[in-house]
């Protein structure tokens, strides 16, 4: 009998590899939308508690990213966009990524629960579980509606931010959830249009791979038509002022115009790339305007009290 005890090669992974594992670009969008959810809540939150909540949400988002990269390492290795990630490159082993992700997930959820409140912690736990189990493990490889249903995870951060501030939920954060939920399909399908060969090689059933470019372009337009009025909802439901309403209308009009160009495009992916780029700007400006609207309203109230 021969028993060979092999040793794993000691890791050469640097801090940067672990930061990459947390998907910093996705994390920045999550943190930004969570900040908006937290700051527009109609309660005063102590800055230390607000900062603690944001750190926990950031780390939780990073944990979800690391667990996604752990499970999707085989897919990532087949796609040009993701082949340079730490696991396919051999910098971090899948086991290390799984351990890192699980540790961060546990730390972030428990800390948010003990230091801020349990409603926010439960939502964060649900978000991480949804992204990893429902989206990454189940939907991503099995249906062309993967990013539609999986979009729930990306849409929850403003609700976590609001819950961190208030300890409860309301219509306003649900509106923000719906905006991100309906923003996700046109954003990701615009990307999938010009990356469809990559997805096909990795056997990921994205809509352009399964249903073709024509159907994808049609559905991008449909979602843009729902998104544009939904983006103005905080204004016409009375949660935001006319400045927000004007900006939301203008952004929605551009979104629809670009979706129409994508629909009309027969060859190439110029319009798809433009829509992908603009969709990021759309979400950023819409949420930034909501923040500006709320903070300026608070400032005017404060000045009014001082004048009295």
């Amino acid at each position: 009998m021969s028993l060979i005890v092999t040793r794993a090669e000691p890791s050469v992974a640097g801090v940067g590899d672990y930061i990459t594992l947390m998907k910093p670009r996705v994390m920045s969008l999550v943190v930004f939308t969570a900040i908006v959810g937290l700051l527009i809540a109609p309660v005063h939150v102590h800055p230390v508690i607000a900062l603690t909540a944001l750190i926990c949400i950031t780390v939780g988002a990073g944990a979800a990213g690391a667990l996604n990269m752990w499970y999707d390492a085989d897919i990532d290795a087949c796609m040009a966009r993701t082949a340079g990630r730490p696991i396919p490159r051999g910098r971090i082993t899948p086991g290390e990524a799984a351990g890192f992700g699980m540790t961060l997930a546990a730390f972030s959820v428990v800390s948010l629960g003990l230091l801020v409140n349990f409603v926010a912690a439960a939502l964060l736990a649900f978000t991480i579980a949804f992204y990893v189990v429902i989206y990454t493990i189940w939907l991503k490889r099995s249906t062309s509606q993967n990013i539609v249903i999986g979009g729930v995870a990306g849409a929850l951060p403003p609700m976590i931010g609001w819950a961190a501030a208030t300890g409860s939920l309301a219509v306003e954060p649900v509106l923000l959830f719906l905006i991100i939920f309906f923003w996700t399909p046109p954003h990701f399908w615009a990307l999938a249009l010009f990356r469809s060969e990559d997805y096909a090689r990795a056997k990921v059933p994205m809509l352009p791979v399964v249903a073709g470019d024509r159907e994808t372009r049609r559905q991008i337009l449909l979602y843009a038509l729902v998104l544009a009025p939904l983006g103005t909802a905080p204004w016409f439901l009375g949660y935001a002022g006319p400045l927000f309403g004007a900006v939301a209308l203008a952004l929605g009009a551009v979104m629809i115009a670009l979706a129409l160009r994508v629909r009309a495009e027969k060859h190439g992916h110029r319009a798809g790339k433009q829509l992908f780029g603009f969709s990021l700007l759309y979400l950023f400006l819409l949420f930034a305007m909501l923040l500006v609207d709320r903070l300026s309203a608070g400032l005017f109230d404060h000045l009014g009290h001082l004048a009295e």
Binding site: P10, A13, V48, S111, L115
Partner: peptide
């Protein structure tokens, strides 16, 4: 290279734990 990477990871873990302690301390104060 492995020694350098391990040292960098150790420093990052120390900083993260230090930050965690500071956060717990500040929240306790608040």
């Amino acid at each position: 290279q492995q020694l350098r990477a391990r040292r960098a990871r150790s420093i990052a873990i120390a900083l993260a734990l230090g930050a965690f302690v500071v956060v717990i301390f500040l929240v306790t104060l608040v």
